[in-house]
Design a protein around this nucleic acid. Structure first.
Lengths: 261, 261
DNA sequence: GCTTTTCATG
DNA sequence: CATGAAAAGC
């Protein structure tokens, strides 16, 4: 069975509804992980997605954050909480077991600035996630950790690594903590398939013409346990939605896996 | 010379720009009087109108009110103040002499409720306008008073005169004051041309499906001095803009005059 | 309902 | 440069 997943930080699902619906139609993933839906469950546009053939699970919050999963086939299990302090503090986590794969969708805190308490919140979130993986899963399981991870892992993943070194999103401490999480047993699927490609997933609204000048960051990831990463057939970033009218500042990342084995 | 004027309460010119541009293209009036532009002069979209072949005069105010004139040919004179207390208090008045006709564009205060100070403000505005006409013009001049007058003159001008009797916009006191202004020497051009037609120009957003059910009011008017009213060739309400996506709650009223005589 | 301002967040 | 919220006005 060939299985396609994707992740998209939409920056407000209500504002981005036409773009997301068009993308579902065009790419027809089995699952789409959303971040920054910026609404409560009661305000989530379930109907529009039903009409497009997708069901949804939502972990909402008023105004900020919020994550969701859109899927064609009912998941076997859904988790919107880890029972831990940091991760559960805001609506940033939603996991589901679908087609035998655990899909863990996170909106990792942005971190604000390295000397802000938000930065420690970000590091704490990542550390807690690692311990949650350790306690609930085995690196031999079929598991994907995806979403807006808000960390660019390598110099190749930011538009100007010298200038951006030490900035939030490309700070050595974050990269070390991220490396520690993935060291549990996760591979960066995009990087595995495209070892040398400089491809971003986020372009800041506040930097003038950032998208036109490709001044971006690769912050949205698909990490998979080794068994799954070896089953990855393809992985890519679709830049089209970022070029449309009223785009999100992020654009979708997708991956295809052959789950036959 | 055949001359076409129109009036449109846009409820925010920035939000209504596409609708107004389409309407100018479609109807090509010589003058379009706008009300409730809801912006300061510095935020008025002059450029977009220039590109469409129209120049603008603006009496702006932050957030509320605001009136403007769009015209093809430069006016001979423009007035944005009367020098009076009530009319000049807010951005609700803009007059220009164009093609030998004085076009007086007003956004008459809505009045809020009959026991609110805003209601007296509305009555005072109308009374002051009458005295301004008396002091500056002669009923024999070519003059048009137009805009959102916020009064339905007759039972035929509201969707349910029994139910609405005494409500703001159809209160006997306002109708009396309006009748007193027009008694100076102004005719209701729409009503002169269509003596029996029940045609509204405003449908409240807050009343569910008001437009679809035609639960409206005729609040936007073209009053002309007798000489001019006799030169009126046609007058109508264009309901199309009110039926579009993201409409204003008002729709344009237009009139055509034969100015040859 | 709909548009505006101001505010908080990214 | 975006989003969403809240309040004021009609």
């Amino acid at each position: 069975m060939v299985w396609k997943m994707a992740t998209f930080n939409v920056n407000g699902i209500r504002a981005r509804l036409p773009i997301v619906l068009d993308w579902l139609q065009k790419e027809a993933p089995d699952v789409l992980c959303l971040q920054e839906i910026k609404c409560q469950e009661k305000d989530f546009p379930f109907k529009a997605f039903e009409a497009a053939g997708y069901h949804a699970a939502v972990r909402g919050q008023k105004s900020f954050n919020g994550v969701a999963l859109l899927f064609r086939d009912a998941p076997e299990e859904i988790r919107s909480e880890t029972g831990r302090d940091v991760i559960d503090r805001e609506a940033r986590f939603l996991a589901a077991l679908m087609n035998g794969v655990w899909v863990v969708n996170t909106y990792v805190p942005q971190g604000r600035s390295p000397d802000d308490p938000a930065f420690q919140f970000k590091l704490g979130f990542l550390k807690e996630l690692k311990s949650w993986f350790e306690n609930h899963f085995d690196p031999g399981d079929r598991l994907i950790w995806t979403g807006d991870i808000n960390v660019a892992p390598e110099p190749l993943d930011v538009f100007d690594p010298k200038r951006l070194e030490g900035e939030v999103g490309f700070h050595p401490e974050e990269r070390a903590v991220l490396a520690d999480v993935t060291a549990w047993g996760l591979e960066d699927v995009f990087r595995k398939i495209h070892p040398e490609v400089r491809q971003f997933t986020f372009w800041d609204y506040r930097l003038p013409k950032s998208f036109e000048r490709n001044l971006g960051w690769r912050l949205d990831h698909v990490f998979a346990t080794r068994v799954l990463a070896e089953a990855a057939v393809d992985c890519g970033v679709d830049v089209e939605p970022r070029g449309r009218e009223k785009p999100s500042d992020h654009t979708p990342v997708w991956a295809v896996f052959d789950l036959s084995g």
